[in-house]
């Protein structure tokens, strides 16, 4: 039988569909109460993230399918989500799908530029600080000329 944690962890992010909410660090905690209720705690990436409602519904659906019909999803804001919580596996999945993962916040500002997820070139330029979703910016590779998304440091 799937554990409650595994059932919540496998929920795919509705906007970055190659990673799960566990990969992203959006899933904070899964607790099973004595009466069978499962309490899931999640945190939004950005305040206005429109994916949160879909994530809540997907968690309930996934847990119900795994035999946990009583689900309570709680949203916490603190500590505030940071891109440092994206797991190594999550970063690898993003890069493989053509989205440059965020560099660690510990790096100095000038070294926080991504490398091209397609050809690996460090010769890249920012086209726009704001991309197709709140968490991404838009870049272009000067090596292979491809534009690409980059999950920006938060």
């Amino acid at each position: 039988m799937t554990t409650a944690f595994a059932a919540a962890a496998r929920v795919v992010d509705p906007e970055l569909r190659v990673v799960t909410i566990a990969d992203l660090g959006v899933l904070r905690e899964v607790e099973e109460e004595a009466d069978g209720t499962v309490r899931v705690t999640i945190t939004p990436t950005y305040s206005g993230c429109p994916a949160m409602d879909a994530i809540r519904a997907d968690i309930a659906r996934s847990l119900t399918a795994a035999g946990y019909p009583d689900v309570e999803v709680r949203t916490v804001l603190s500590p505030a989500w940071t891109t440092d919580w994206i797991t190594d596996e999550g970063r690898a999945k993003l890069a493989a799908a053509g989205t440059a993962p965020p560099p660690p916040r510990s790096l100095p500002l000038l070294q926080r530029t991504p490398v091209c997820p397609r050809c690996g070139s460090p010769e890249v330029e920012e086209i726009s600080r704001f991309g197709s979703t709140a968490c991404k910016s838009l870049w272009r590779c000067r090596g292979c000329a491809e534009p690409f998304d980059h999950v920006k440091v938060l």
Partner: peptide, 12 residues
């Protein structure tokens, strides 16, 4: 896209 994203942050 940028202005819409910033508006969305504020709406959140």
């Amino acid at each position: 896209v940028a202005l819409a994203n910033i508006a969305l942050d504020l709406l959140g």
